[in-house]
Amino acid sequence: MLHRSAVEAVIRAGLAEDAPWGDLTSDLALPADAHATATVTSRESGVFAGEEVIRTGFAVADPALTVQLHVADGDVLEPGTVVATVSGPVRPLLSAERTVLNLVQRMSGIATTTARYVAEVEKTVAEVERANKLPTGTITRTRVCDTRKTTPGLRALEKHAVTCGGGHNHRFGLSDAVMLKDNHLAVLTAGGASLPHALRELRRKMPHTACMEVEVDRLDQIEDVLAGGADVVMLDNFSRADLVSGVAMIDGRAAVEASGGITLETIGDVAATGVDVISVGALTHSVRALDLGLDIAVD
């Protein structure tokens, strides 16, 4: 769940950046007692994310502003869908408009992109079930997850948006899990220690509630990683054939994650290999904002 405190911190920083000494245009051009009602509307199809941002954003700008939301996180938008109605003093309404819309448009873009990736995985699973004459739901759906490739300061909002699109969150940050990548492994084994031994020593130091994920980029690394006690094995930038081989080698001894350069065009093939998780940096690092607009009517 996206906590109001996290949203409020982002909103306050955004408002301070946009109007550090006030809104020169609104303060000079608009009467202090002017009131208005504004409608936030979708201008294209997509998936909505950001109800807490709209609610909190305008409240932070001025508690006198009232917000009525007409959609919820995860709802499908069409062109012309009314997202929210905001009423109250016009100066703070217009001063907060850009900050709030920028965030909600980005979050909705992330939710929309995630939903497309999830749909491709679901389509592949359904095709495999049909081809093998299996009842619907026989095959567990591969999870589509985000990464830490998020905008600094906006991670909580962006990861929440992924869940609105039907995806799942990977670790939130470095404090959440032990995740060893190639650079970690190079340092761990630099003194000549075997990889299984180094991982077992690390396991001894870990809290019992933490999990260990280890990245590999070759099939011949897998057995050593499993011998070291990895809970999750990340197959990084593997070919489809090697993903199939990797899943067979691991054979349920650890969860299997596929990562590296996965696109909307390739995620179906990756899901069909039987991996448990597919992590996609593109869900957050290269999305296009969904087009939303705010139109005002003077009371």
Results as ranks from 00 to 15, higher is better:
residue 151 T to E: 10
residue 132 N to M: 02
residue 198 A to T: 07
residue 203 R to P: 02
residue 92 P to M: 14
residue 135 P to D: 02
residue 121 V to H: 14
residue 101 L to M: 10
residue 149 K to N: 04
residue 143 R to F: 13
residue 117 Y to T: 08
residue 98 R to Q: 03
residue 148 R to K: 03
residue 186 A to K: 15
residue 187 V to W: 06
residue 135 P to H: 09
residue 154 L to A: 03
residue 172 F to Y: 14
residue 153 G to K: 00
residue 160 H to R: 14
residue 138 T to C: 00
residue 141 R to I: 11
residue 200 R to A: 08
residue 105 Q to A: 13
residue 99 T to M: 05
residue 183 N to C: 05
residue 193 A to G: 07
residue 165 G to C: 15
residue 93 L to H: 06
residue 122 E to K: 12
residue 87 S to E: 11
residue 134 L to A: 13
residue 96 A to G: 12
residue 196 P to D: 07
residue 117 Y to A: 10
residue 145 C to P: 04
residue 138 T to I: 00
residue 151 T to R: 10
residue 204 R to A: 14
residue 149 K to I: 08
residue 113 T to N: 09
residue 142 T to Y: 01
residue 202 L to G: 13
residue 149 K to D: 02
residue 113 T to L: 05
residue 154 L to G: 09
residue 155 R to A: 09
residue 159 K to E: 07
residue 116 R to L: 14
residue 118 V to F: 15
residue 128 V to P: 03
residue 183 N to W: 10
residue 153 G to C: 01
residue 149 K to F: 11
residue 113 T to Y: 06
residue 96 A to S: 13
residue 131 A to G: 08
residue 191 G to H: 08
residue 140 T to Q: 12
residue 168 H to V: 09
residue 171 R to V: 11
residue 103 L to I: 06
residue 95 S to D: 02
residue 157 L to E: 02
residue 176 D to L: 02
residue 126 A to H: 06
residue 202 L to M: 09
residue 137 G to M: 10
residue 126 A to M: 07
residue 156 A to Y: 06
residue 164 C to H: 01
residue 147 T to G: 15
residue 92 P to C: 13
residue 185 L to D: 01
residue 162 V to G: 11
residue 201 E to R: 12
residue 147 T to A: 13
residue 153 G to A: 12
residue 108 S to R: 05
residue 114 T to L: 05
residue 176 D to V: 12
residue 107 M to T: 07
residue 117 Y to I: 06
residue 141 R to G: 05
residue 172 F to D: 12
residue 90 V to I: 15
residue 117 Y to S: 09
residue 158 E to K: 06
residue 137 G to D: 01
residue 156 A to M: 07
residue 148 R to T: 01
residue 161 A to Y: 10
residue 200 R to V: 11
residue 178 V to C: 06
residue 92 P to Y: 05
residue 187 V to T: 07
residue 102 N to Q: 10
residue 163 T to Y: 04
residue 104 V to N: 15
residue 165 G to Q: 06
residue 137 G to W: 00
residue 128 V to S: 09
residue 142 T to W: 15
residue 113 T to F: 06
residue 170 H to I: 10
residue 96 A to Y: 09
residue 105 Q to M: 12
residue 163 T to W: 01
residue 182 D to Q: 15
residue 169 N to L: 03
residue 172 F to C: 03
residue 87 S to Y: 08
residue 194 S to V: 03
residue 202 L to W: 03
residue 99 T to R: 13
residue 135 P to E: 05
residue 125 V to D: 08
residue 103 L to R: 13
residue 117 Y to Q: 10
residue 91 R to A: 04
